[in-house]
Amino acid sequence: MQQCITKYSGLVWSIARRYVKNHTCVEDVVQETFTDLWKSANRYDPAVASESTFIGMLARRRAIDFARKESRRPQLEPLPEAESLPQSSAQPTFFIRGESGDVVAAIKDLPEETRQIFSLHFDEGMTHPEISEKTGLPLGTVKTRLRRGLIEVRNKLRQAESGEAAQPSNSINS
């Protein structure tokens, strides 16, 4: 666990800060993400996702949950518990290890306009209305491009990874 904190606390902290404005809540998100990680570590399967992807997902969930509470926006539904993640023994229906090179390549394949929106959203941390204002694109177009871009990247990662045997090496459940 200490290893995980050393290695990934920066990532978790950065994700939390991106979504949550209240400093105390950011700290809570970080602590709860690592609690989630500890609770679900035995369900982590390196063949399904890389460590940073897995931990990033846990951090996003917690952060988005907090952000929803902050903004009092309607909840879609509670995010699935960490325990509901597929176990190693289960046959996964997806493999999104999210290796850095594959992710970069998949994003590069996106249309230029979508790449720009991705950069504004994922890199700059801009909200959809902020992106719409900056780019001059209608809000609906921003939403659609982001959604379809996400699906496209997922499909490309699947393609890239479907033929590869995963090389498990991790510090999460060791």
Partner: peptide, 22 residues
């Protein structure tokens, strides 16, 4: 979980260059 994992992977990728220390 594939889309959620993808979003996390993209976010981690972008944050690599601007990650701040805890």
């Amino acid at each position: 979980f594939s889309l959620e994992l993808t979003a996390a992977a993209i976010e981690a990728e972008f944050l690599q260059s601007r990650q701040s220390e805890l």
